[in-house]
């Protein structure tokens, strides 16, 4: 499969990348691992004139402890996230979701920033980012700005990243000591999520003190299941209470229908999987 012809640059700094993006105009595309972009190019579903590879920008890779946040460079690979101790300790849910993405080869190439900026509603990283109130650091010509996850995902494959801007860092609050679980449902082990649920809970004395729940592929963007969160808080972490709360998983969703799952089945899955995810997280 041969993509249409394009030019390729590999800038060494964010400033150079932003400049290349401005000069490339509408027809420029950023490649941030390429696990979604390359198939699209090869199928000629997109034909950018310029591809800007962020792979040469060292400052965009890495995970660091930034006080009350864990800051992850946009070009950090899934593989690096998976084996990182800071992530395990403070943002375990992100690691759990990352572990379910595709296969080992993809996890070595794909990046967190690439996945979030791609904003495929079936992608696995959006729901944890949303549930955990991550902040997106976006760089442009006039400097950087920070967008909360709740405002970052706009529509199918559409985010708050503006023209000429680049996602540079994702900052997660620390959820040290929280229980978490990512419950994914797909056709085959390497397939995209038909539906998945990202859950983090803080259990205090047998009852749920705080809860964060995000849904994958239940609408045009990742969706925060606030109804479930509200219903969980203050409840004993029993199967019965959790299942009752999970029944509210479809509030505010707009489940798509496709060949794998029609909307009613997806909604059913969302409820079942939410219950299971919360049980696992609280257990």
């Amino acid at each position: 499969m041969i993509p249409a012809k394009f030019d390729y640059v590999k800038p060494a700094s964010v400033a150079d990348a932003v400049r290349a993006l401005r000069e490339g105009g509408d027809d420029a595309k950023i490649i941030a691992g390429g696990q979604s972009l390359l198939p699209v190019l090869r199928l000629r579903l997109a034909a950018p004139s310029l591809v800007i590879d962020l792979g040469g920008i060292a400052e965009l890779r890495g995970i660091r402890d930034d006080g009350d946040r864990i800051a992850i460079g946009a070009m950090t690979s899934y593989y690096d996230i998976l084996r990182d101790d800071l992530v395990k300790q403070h943002v375990a849910l992100l690691g759990q979701a990352t572990e379910t993405v595709a296969d080992n080869q993809v996890r070595h190439r794909g990046t967190l920033g690439g996945a979030l900026a791609h904003a495929d509603p079936a992608g696995d990283l959006g729901a944890p980012a949303l549930a955990l109130d991550a902040e997106m650091v976006i760089a442009g010509e006039s400097g950087t700005r920070t967008v909360p996850a709740a405002e970052f995902f706009v529509d199918y494959f559409t985010t708050a990243i503006g023209e000429g801007e680049i996602l540079t860092e994702i900052r997660f609050p620390k959820y040290t000591g929280w229980g978490s679980h990512y419950e994914k449902f797909n056709r085959t082990a390497q397939a995209w999520s038909m539906c998945a649920v990202a859950v983090a809970v803080r259990v205090d004395g047998g009852s749920i003190a705080e809860a964060r729940v995000g849904l994958t592929n239940m609408g045009t963007t990742p969706i925060r299941a606030t109804g479930v969160e509200q219903a969980l808080v203050g409840q004993q972490a029993t199967a019965e209470a959790i299942r009752a709360a999970a029944d509210r998983a479809t509030e505010g969703t707009a489940a798509p229908s496709d060949a794998d799952a029609a909307a009613d089945y997806r909604e059913h899955l969302a409820r079942v999987l939410t219950g299971r995810a919360v049980l696992a997280a609280a257990g």
Binding site: L45, D120, P121, W192, M194, P256, S257, D258, A259, A263
Partner: peptide, 13 residues
């Protein structure tokens, strides 16, 4: 179902 609906990964493009 609507087999042309986008959303569920690359394959549904």
């Amino acid at each position: 179902v609507d087999t042309h609906s986008p959303g569920a990964g690359l394959g549904s493009i």
